[in-house]
Design a protein around this nucleic acid. Structure first.
Length: 137
DNA sequence: GCCAACGTTGGC
DNA sequence: GCCAACGTTGGC
């Protein structure tokens, strides 16, 4: 089975990567956007996920892993949306900022750059490798 | 704080 | 079913 890669956004004021490390795992709920929900449904156990800090930080700061695939989001009264569970893998050695990603030609097609408001987006294998390299450089 | 992008709602 | 109005997200 081939694993896929994703990116999720979170405002560190409400839930940061450090919070995920502290908790060990967390329910990724509250997504109320159909495109984002489709990506949640496509996540497989073991898929790796970049954890991006929006509003404050504006950078990919860590890697998480899908530990439970999509199930009904109990915070959605209408019962239409789904949640997954994520666990921390590791913090990046160096955060990769939005400005750096925008400046990197290899990331020009990246979903989160093309549609800035999408809170859950796919990351191609090449984009994943590019960002990992930027995090060590 | 402002504004662009974009999704949703509701009147027709 | 269209589209204007409105609300939310998120970068600047």
């Amino acid at each position: 089975m081939t694993l896929s890669h994703w990116l999720v956004k979170s405002e560190p004021n409400s839930y940061s990567y450090a919070d995920l490390e502290r908790d060990g795992r967390t329910v990724w709920d509250g997504v109320r956007n159909n495109a984002a929900a489709l990506h949640l449904k496509a996540m497989k156990e073991g898929d790796e996920v970049f954890f991006y800090h929006s509003q404050e930080g504006l950078a990919v700061v860590g890697i998480a892993r899908v530990v439970r695939t999509a199930f009904p989001d109990t915070t959605d009264p209408a019962g239409r949306f789904v949640a997954v569970e994520l666990a921390p893998v590791r913090a990046l050695a160096r955060p990769v900022t939005l400005a750096e990603m925008k400046a990197e030609a290899a990331l020009a097609g990246m979903a989160m750059l093309r549609q800035s408001r999408l809170s859950v987006s796919p990351v191609s294998a090449d984009e994943w490798a590019t960002i990992l390299k930027m995090a060590t450089g």
